[in-house]
């Protein structure tokens, strides 16, 4: 893919994420990690190549069907992208409201999730009044509220100390155990070596696999790709 008429920032990327898998996406700053995630959460279309998400070809899918695919993907953005004029509660509730869920159901689920993430006392607080760690939890709660099939996190440990980063990854691991496919972009070598998970490594727009723990993931059915990147190249 490319931004506008700029150079191709992703060139040779071929991979298939099996449902229920857990991957780290690594690479130096500027290698294209965020760009690859943008393709996955449908913020960009590839300029060439094939992207399939939940067995749908993104290139041929009518535009009005994309929102329904996006609702199955939870994203924790690098800069959180919380809405500062809305309370923590309303921020977390947003994906459900957008999907037209009834207000009573929303209240129950959001209150539950905020309590679970330890934000039960801050439901009415606006993001600017929260600490960085608290904002991150709001962002994670927003990504999880609609029980996504695919969870994408862009440098989630970038803004927090190591101890918190580790706790966060245990949380993602827990979600993965419950069936969510997880992709975490990070450049933290310590985290990657600590959690023995398969790695997708990007170098200047070229993807290199390091499937360290193949045995663990061998359970997934390769004929049922939840998410595929390119047969051949995707750019």
């Amino acid at each position: 893919m490319r931004y506008g008429t700029g150079p191709e920032v992703l060139r040779e990327v071929t991979c298939t994420l099996k449902p229920g898998s857990f991957h780290f996406l690594t690479g130096r700053s500027g290698a294209g990690k965020s760009s690859l995630l943008k393709l996955m959460y449908l913020a960009h279309r590839p300029s060439r190549g094939l992207v399939t998400l939940f067995d749908e070809d993104i290139a041929t899918l009518p535009r009005q069907r994309l929102p329904f695919l996006r609702r199955r993907v939870g994203v924790v953005f690098q800069e959180f992208r919380l809405l500062n004029h809305l309370s923590a509660f309303d921020n977390v509730a947003l994906p459900l409201r957008v999907a037209g869920v009834k207000e009573g159901t929303i209240r129950k689920h959001v209150d539950e999730l905020l309590a679970w993430t330890g934000l039960g006392d801050h439901t009415e607080a606006r993001p600017p009044t929260l600490s960085g760690g608290q904002q991150q939890r709001v962002a994670i709660a927003r990504a999880l509220i609609s029980r996504p099939d695919l969870l994408l996190a862009d440098e989630p440990t970038g803004n927090v100390d190591d101890a918190l980063g580790v706790r966060l990854l245990y949380l993602f691991e827990e979600l993965n155990r419950m069936g969510t496919t997880v992709v975490i972009a990070t450049h933290s070598e310590s985290l990657v070596s600590r959690f023995k998970k398969p790695i997708l490594h990007l170098e200047d727009g070229v993807l290199i696999h390091h499937d360290r723990v193949e045995a663990k993931d061998g359970t997934a059915d390769p004929r049922d790709p939840r998410k595929q990147f390119g047969r051949g190249t995707k750019q």
């Binding site: 959460y41 449908l42 913020a43 009005q64 929102p67 329904f68 996006r70 609702r71 994203v75 992208r81 809405l83 947003l94 994906p95 957008v98 999907a99 927003r142 609609s146």
Partner: peptide, 16 residues
């Protein structure tokens, strides 16, 4: 624009 983009990315339809 930033808010609209977030709404869009979390699955809001244009009508929303």
């Amino acid at each position: 624009q930033d808010v609209i983009e977030v709404l869009h990315l979390i699955g809001a339809e244009d009508g929303y």
